[in-house]
Design a protein around this nucleic acid. Structure first.
Lengths: 215, 215
DNA sequence: CTCGAACCGTACCGTACGGTACGCCTGCGC
DNA sequence: GCGCAGGCGTACCGTACGGTACGGTTCGAG
């Protein structure tokens, strides 16, 4: 069963959030070379405080990822009167959000950190990132897809398959290449193509799952 | 311009290959906790020899990844008499190979290692993995796609876009979830679905790029 | 047989870093 | 004013690990 992680704003005090911000900044800057001493210095706090608040290095890492990942908020899509145009625009919006998120520096850093963590038999960070990344989009997108099907605008058997196809059409090989540090995908390079990619992915998705497509 | 890395069998002596095998085994077992001492013990060689042969830890890591990645060999597809059936079977074969590779334990380990490496401003491992993974498939697939277009079996403007769509349709969110350690994707779980996924991805690819599809 | 190169095993060094201890300061309740 | 909790800064400890040095052994060339 899925593990859901909830983070209220009250989970961390402002001072603690400042510390987490410092940790995230260091993570983005220095890659995974995150040391407790560096965080303490950057946040102007003592290491003892870090250990008091977060337990150990893993706790600090988890808190940072968790806190940051929870900040990713998908825009709410109006699900009422769903005509073809509104549905298409919603799908496009999801594609745009997904691409924007995964190409962002913070997301790349968080995903790299979680992958590194997963390479050490620890899956906690991976779960958090999954839960707030792909799975969050899935939770928001599925109802839209099903509403589209109910309105006879879309046609599919499994909304899970439809979602995963959508994910593939949008993300393609961009995320893995970014994670691997492919230099030919610069930030600006990708961002400039987002709109075109969004449109292309949406077109393809409707070609496969639109009501007029082959069953 | 792309950096191509060539590894002949003569690049490493049998003894050296035994060392690299030991290193890879440790990598797969213990995640990225690869220490020089552990490799030396596992391979029954001295650390001094390791440093003599591979320079430093990074050199050993690079050699391991490079040597292993180069072992991935795509089957050659008969490109002559290309009828619809042969084309479809070729595409399916590529999808099957791609899925089989990326879901394999070795591939997951290598990708994780490269991602971790990329988080430290070093892109050498990432380049190697990219070059021997996605890009290798691309090099082999593109000529097939273009042959298919010449035979009027496929229709697309950019073979690059066609390739990337293919990649997305096949891989979807499987790779990132595996890299993040998603427990709900067990090895056997994925393998059992490969054939169905291959067929589905191929169907979708032909729906989008088949000659009878919308332009 | 002798010599030397290659290599194994092990001991060793330096450092980086996780984690702890302690002295000092600040602010707040009383 | 007084005491104390919370927190800063720094010094300190233990250990893991990258990298080096060295003695001993094997093996092939001459």
């Amino acid at each position: 069963m899925p593990v859901t992680i909830k983070v209220n704003e009250e989970t961390f005090t402002p001072r603690q959030q400042a510390v987490l911000t410092a940790a995230l900044d260091l993570l983005v800057e220095n890659g995974d070379g995150l040391t407790m001493t560096a965080v303490a210095r950057r946040a102007s706090c003592s290491k003892e405080t870090l250990y008091k608040w977060f337990g150990d290095r893993d706790g600090l890492l988890t808190a940072t990822v968790q806190w940051q990942a929870a900040k990713v908020r998908m825009p709410v899509v109006d699900r009422s009167h769903l005509n073809a145009k509104a549905l298409r625009s919603s799908i496009e919006q999801f594609a745009r959000d997904l691409l924007t998120v995964i190409t962002g520096e913070v997301s790349i850093t968080l995903n790299r950190t979680a992958v590194t963590h997963a390479a050490q038999e620890k899956d906690s960070l991976g779960i958090i990132v999954l839960e707030n990344g792909p799975l969050a989009i899935r939770r928001r997108l599925k109802p839209i897809l099903e509403a589209g099907r109910d309105a006879r605008l879309l046609r599919f058997e499994s909304s899970e398959d439809a979602y995963r196809t959508f994910f593939g059409l949008v993300v393609r090989d961009v995320q893995i290449r970014l994670l691997l540090g492919d230099k030919s995908l610069t930030q600006s390079n990708v961002e400039a193509n987002i709109e075109a990619d969004v449109k292309s992915a949406t077109d393809q998705f409707f070609a496969l799952y639109g009501a007029k497509a082959n069953p």
